[in-house]
Design a protein around this nucleic acid. Structure first.
Length: 302
DNA sequence: GACCAGGGTAACT
DNA sequence: AGTTACCATGGT
């Protein structure tokens, strides 16, 4: 009995923009690319396997959620994909802050900032340091396969990719030895992952507590984890704690902003402060439009 | 083989 | 407070 849930006419949404922009890593594209306007992905998140398909509709896109009942869409996926938010206003505010971004925003108008699980986001972005996106995805997959809870693929109506386990919990990573973590090919990040798992499993750091703090205080707390610096903390704030004013500055953002705004080599801290001053509570969205644009056009890499 | 990747740490000035 | 080598691993 195949269960699926369909949502019609969603504006400002495109799966490729949402998923292929370096904000999440536990997914795979599964369509052939042969049918115009159709996209399909498997996503492992929220202790669930989602097979999702996007098709053109009269106003925006149609999304078909496989393996999904209505209540799961209402309580989980709607929030995960940030579908309650009006992105037309967000785009307006960003373009108003810098009219030069109009083309970039329109070019990537299907972007949404996901509301992801806090712990998975934390570990994923610890892994991300000094790694390219395809490798981050591979390590997340390895870590899940080795230490996460396996799911029974025969119980899933639709799964086109090779995923077979959920992302490990804080407890699972806490119990695992450093060598077991290292087997995921995360290299020198293994002790960082262990420290994060310990701090979360022990309750020293918790989503509940962080969500009550100011963004600055939460960032400070996150940075007490070994292996979490300014950039990783900002990613966790933006993607895992809903702090849309966070503006992570990585090698890409540094290059892009230097090209667009500064013209000379500029410290990351200065770029972050500049962006917050310019975009305020919309800085995180601006960052992500800029990031996806920079990747697409390989800004600064020649 | 050198260099780089959605960086951070420790050990230096 | 601001630099710099080094950190595993895989790709170009």
């Amino acid at each position: 009995m195949n269960k699926s849930y369909i949502v019609e006419n969603i504006r400002d949404f495109h799966l490729e923009h949402v998923l292929e922009c370096g904000q999440c890593f536990h997914f795979a594209r599964t369509d052939t690319g042969l049918n115009y306007g159709e996209y399909e992905y498997d996503i492992v998140a929220n202790n669930r396997i989602l097979h999702i398909k996007e098709e053109p509709s009269s106003d925006g896109v149609r999304l078909i959620f496989d393996n999904t009942e209505k209540w799961e869409y209402d309580t989980i996926w709607k929030n995960y994909f940030d579908l309650d938010r009006d992105y037309s206003e967000i785009k307006e505010r960003i373009i108003k802050a810098d009219p030069r971004l109009e083309e970039i925003v329109e070019e990537n108008s299907g972007l949404r900032i996901l509301n992801q699980d806090f712990f998975e986001t934390l570990i994923s972005f610890i892994i991300s340091q000094n790694k390219q996106i395809p490798q981050i995805k591979q390590i997340v997959k390895n870590l899940s396969a080795e230490l996460g809870t396996k799911f029974d693929v025969t119980m899933i109506d639709r799964l086109d990719s090779e995923f077979d386990a959920f992302f490990p919990t804080a407890e699972q990573l806490y119990i695992a030895t450093e060598d077991e973590v290292r087997a995921s090919k995360c290299g020198f990040r293994a002790p960082y992952i262990k420290d994060a798992a310990e701090k979360v499993f022990s309750g020293e750091i918790s989503y509940k507590e962080l969500s009550k703090m100011s963004t600055d205080k939460a960032k400070e707390k996150l940075m007490t984890i070994h292996g979490v610096g300014e950039k990783v903390a900002n990613c966790v704030l933006l993607f895992g704690l809903g702090r849309r004013e966070a503006f992570p500055v990585d090698v890409w953002m540094k290059r892009i902003c230097e090209e667009m705004y500064f013209g000379v080599d500029t410290p990351k801290s200065e770029i972050e402060a500049f962006a917050y001053d310019k975009f305020g509570e919309y800085a995180g969205y601006a960052q992500q439009y800029l990031f996806i644009y920079g990747q697409k056009h390989k800004i600064g890499t020649k």
